[in-house]
Design a protein around this nucleic acid. Structure first.
Lengths: 213, 213, 213, 213
DNA sequence: GATGAATGAGAATTCATTCAT
DNA sequence: AATGAATGAATTCTCATTCAT
């Protein structure tokens, strides 16, 4: 996949990309089931039949979107995290990148939200993989934070990961349903603060941890 | 099959409920668009045409599910919250009820997760209303907690609400995709602890702001 | 329940009439195929199933309408014709009655127009019979007129009958599609005049009609 | 007109015509409502779905039949009329063409008879337009005849038009219901004679003959 | 490779008719 | 007799996919 530049290949690749990009928009705007292959073809500026030269069927388009596009996005998460040193900064970089990538790509954000919350996912494998990748990064950060003594040690890591991912997801979902207007990335710092400090008053002995009762 | 004869209720209400209950299962298992009216009819033990005596069309079934079922569930949240005195306990009751209601109603949980994360929702109005109801309860609790000095005052309330709802949602979503096997309600206390205390180490005094690096 | 036996019988008859009358209106307004049995039942103020106590099926309603109602109307044509002495007056009475009956019964007029011009008539037998009855009356009148020397003898009777019936029908059809507003019966005299005198200028002599007498 | 235009293809034009022609026959034989799209497709030798590449829906097929076919027919009336000089000959040409066109096109004749006599017409606009066109031609002829002193001047023109059109229509309708067997066009001359001379005895002021042959 | 016309399986919905009450 | 809920056959229309050009 890396060498490139052979003419027919390039041209094909061009159509492949155009179809993929068109599909992202059409799927995001109408949902997978309400979208028709004809709509995607029209949006991509190709004939209906051409779709089937590049994709096995309608569902395959969705699968490839997740294969190609979301992998790229998630790769950037890795980079962003590696750019920071301590756990808190890593977490902040992760969330900031997460929010800004989705902000720059509202159609992918919509697709991702929609597909991840389906019970019978069309892209089950891909989502599991990406979800795991994301949660592994968070795990890594949390564990580093614990070593750095910036993050508490008596945590249920499996839950902490959901806690963080879920909050970020919901912020994105709210943004989507508001029409994607306001500045999403600016939510990163306040979110990290909530993750780290919680909402409780710090001065109290305040331990309401779950293992108590 | 012969001994226990359950009388077919002459009350049409019976059929209405049977169709509704059947639809919840079918929609949850296959998704709205992959489900056919014939499947629902079969699951409900009625003829295809009978569906249309009780529902305007396929979409109307989904709308009524949200109108009827989820309202009932959300009414219980209110009750649970009112049973507690202080804000922390209210929050714990809310989340515990939320989790246990969805645990007892996995199909509704699936439907709810799916519909709330669609971009073009079929039940937009209902979801907006319920979402607002839920977030209002959370607001109320947070504000009471601030008066009780149990919850910090320098909070961005709009974000705090998403932060809490998102985390709970993600816990439910994870549970659904694990097959709904483990005890969901037991996540309530650990979650509340995370909300209140965050994941940061508490020993640092006075640092409650997020912009301090 | 068995005490009063007379009432139900009368009541039944009442229901029969109500259904028939309701059906005439519904069929006229929507056409036979677009009308539903449920609509007729509702218009008649009876239950759907009740229709089937009085009529074999939907088509049977239409048949009975023609059997009952139109026979009554055509009976009056006979009476009107018999009230006049000479052929011209008989023709005038026939047409005047025809127009005024249909004017007083626009829904029947609509039904009649519609059904008589269908290729596969649902009431073929009835229409043939009534058509014959009408044309026979016209024949009778024309023949009497020929004996009275009021009507030409070198006529193709089969055509003359159509010529008269067609013109009257078209006048009615035009009236229907104008909304049935103006005075239909007033067309009788001018029509008869056209039938008798034609539209040609009378002054010429030395007749050469279309076939050599 | 702002109708939705369906792609006029070169090769597909063939299919368009085949569907149209098949539909004329199917509609004529069974009536619009009893005809199914599947029947038309089968008669045209195409798949059911193919119909919808060329027509918006079932009703659209009927509309296009009237748009396309009947306009052609009516155009010929104009030509036939223009070929004659005096009013009587024009009228004869009109009626002769009318009868022979419908004779050569019995299915269209059936469709036309049926649709024009419906109260709620599916092709209201088209029929109104064609009806007006026809009646305008008749008006023109009559007025010319009056100038030529071949047609009486004290006529109610609105009625005369109906009188002529109705008689012709009825002759066609009778022919249709006889099975379309005999020679329809041969009715033209006798009909014109009836229009001109009427059926009354000319004894008063002599003859009412309309032409010298 | 591209095309887009053609296909036909499949789905939603309607409604005449039946039948238990 | 009267009801009207229930039925399911029948119909219209959509759209993913194919294939001849």
């Amino acid at each position: 996949m890396g060498r490139v530049v052979i003419k027919p290949q390039k041209k094909s690749n061009d159509k492949y990309q155009r179809i993929l990009d068109a599909a992202i928009i059409v799927f995001a705007e109408q949902g997978f089931f309400r979208s028709t292959v004809a709509q995607i073809a029209k949006a991509a500026g190709v004939a209906d039949g051409t779709i089937y030269l590049y994709f096995k069927n309608k569902e395959d388009i969705l699968v490839r979107i997740f294969d190609d596009k979301t992998r790229q996005v998630f790769a950037r998460f890795r980079v962003a995290v590696d750019e920071a040193d301590n756990a808190i900064d890593k977490l902040r970089n992760l969330i900031r990148t997460h929010l800004s990538e989705f902000q720059n790509n509202i159609h992918m954000a919509v697709l991702y939200q929609s597909e991840t919350h389906q019970s019978t996912r069309l892209v089950e494998v891909q989502i599991r993989e990406m979800s795991k990748m994301y949660l592994d990064i968070v795990s890594e950060i949390v564990e580093q934070g614990q070593q750095e003594n910036r993050i508490r040690k008596n945590l249920y890591l499996g839950l902490v990961k959901r806690f963080i991912l879920g909050a970020v997801d919901e912020v994105i979902n709210t943004w989507i349903h508001s029409g994607g207007t306001y500045e999403l990335a600016s939510m990163a710092d306040p979110l990290v603060s909530l993750f780290i400090n919680g909402i409780g008053t710090p001065q109290k002995q305040g331990d309401t941890s779950w293992h108590k009762s």
